[in-house]
Design a protein around this nucleic acid. Structure first.
Lengths: 247, 247
DNA sequence: AGGTGATGTGTACGCCGTATCGACGTGAGA
DNA sequence: TCTCACGTCGATACGGCGTACACATCACCT
């Protein structure tokens, strides 16, 4: 799926063989200074070190030592470049988790997906949890294999995976969003962040519209413990699946 | 929180009184052809009808019958414009749901948030679930009020809200992403979508890497029932909360 | 009546994605 | 060994974007 795009109403057909199909025909490659792999690698390196918005066709070309338009031989446009980057990163996921049972497998999957998102923060903005690229598809494949044999029908199995995947993706995304905000404002730890946000918060709380929020915010002790929040939410989701479907 | 942005390392301080503070001092308004409200309204209208990427400072100015730079008197840049749009839409949320108990309240909140996302599809890309704008903050306020009085500590309460909010936001986002893909390719129903995706799928399944996925996809009967998927996942999450915390 | 500060305008800069076409190097067939 | 067609990459250009900056203009207060 392209980096999320809005309705435009045209371009109904796709004459191309879909990027992934083109990908594993390495081409006769007469002069291959460029390959999809090298392009993805370079683009990911830029995004990792300078952020997703630094990934520009021109910037990418510079990094590859090539003319601005060169990458267009391998990628139909920027959307496909991003698909390529996402799939490249998903290719590094460890999916050979031991098959201890559905719950351990789903838990391990979630932990690895989160680690991936924290290592490549831009990916939470670039990826949809259910995109149809080879390495992204390997995630539900692993999950479905782990969920098989519990007497669940196909729809239930998909609903379970969907729920865990959505939680994992969203949880990582919100964690990354906070980190990005911190970094962009130069705040290092939780206290500095609260100090930086203080004026905003003082005003908002001063309106008196949020008494419960204010109280809970004041009493909370684990605001700066994203691991705890991630695990707690994940446990809830997995408990809910176990309870709701009796597995 | 600004439309998600990556680390840049500078702009450490915010000299301005934070947009929301500026907002309710209506200004002496000598010549108020423009107001934050009118700006938000116009921008939302554009995003609703033409998609988020059609919201351009120039396009917005045209819609308001004003010069391209005029809106910058009210908004420090495009990021703040988007914050304003998001908060404007959140302002339309019905939050006066009857207080039947925490579960009914959380369920109603989730349903309303999803309806909002489906009515303004761009908002799933523009909003973070935990942004600090007045009308967005009203959501956790409502949730915390409903969760109070169950003997839960503050951290647990926040974890519960976080989990539900993340699920709801992510579920709506994935639903919207699929709708956007459909609209952009001109596919109307599920069958047309499958037909359009067929070449891609044929290739991917032909690789033999996804046997479980293929089988479950073939057996699933509710692929085109987003309501069922949303409710099923939400029930799992709420069941999990009830089970995990004994409420 | 006149001055003053908030409000909207005009112009311009640098960057973006990408369409198009020409130059070039390579491997296959003669 | 020569040739030639094709896959690769380069150069240039276009329209559109966000927004900095200086200027004109309006409404009110004295």
């Amino acid at each position: 799926m392209p980096a999320q795009q809005a309705p435009t109403g045209d371009d109904h057909d796709q004459p191309q063989p879909s990027l992934w199909e083109r990908l594993d025909r390495p081409a006769p490659a007469p002069r291959s200074t460029l390959t999809p792999h090298r392009i993805a690698e370079a683009a990911v390196a830029i995004a990792d070190t300078e952020g997703l918005e630094a990934v520009t066709m021109r910037r990418l070309a510079t990094a590859l030592g090539v003319a601005p338009m060169a990458a267009y031989r391998y990628v139909s446009g920027k959307d496909e470049l991003i698909e390529l980057m996402v799939d490249f990163v998903y290719g590094g996921l460890p999916l050979d988790t031991p098959a201890d049972g559905w719950r351990q497998t789903m838990h391990a999957l979630a932990v690895h997906l989160r680690a991936m998102s924290l290592a490549h923060p831009w990916i939470t903005r670039a990826a949809t949890p259910f995109a149809l690229s080879p390495n992204q598809l390997a995630v539900p494949e692993r999950a479905f294999a782990a969920l098989a044999g519990h007497g669940l029908d196909a729809d239930t199995t998909m609903a379970i995976f969907r729920t865990v995947a959505i939680y994992t993706h969203g949880s990582s995304a919100s964690e990354v969003a906070l980190q990005d905000l911190r970094r962009s404002r130069g705040w290092s730890d939780g206290d500095e962040t609260r100090a930086g946000l203080a004026p905003r918060m003082t005003y908002l709380m001063g309106t008196g519209r949020y008494p419960a929020y204010q109280r809970f915010l004041h009493e909370a002790r684990r605001k700066d413990d994203p691991d705890w929040h991630f695990e707690t939410g994940l446990d809830c989701v997995l408990d809910g699946i176990a309870a709701h479907f009796g597995i």
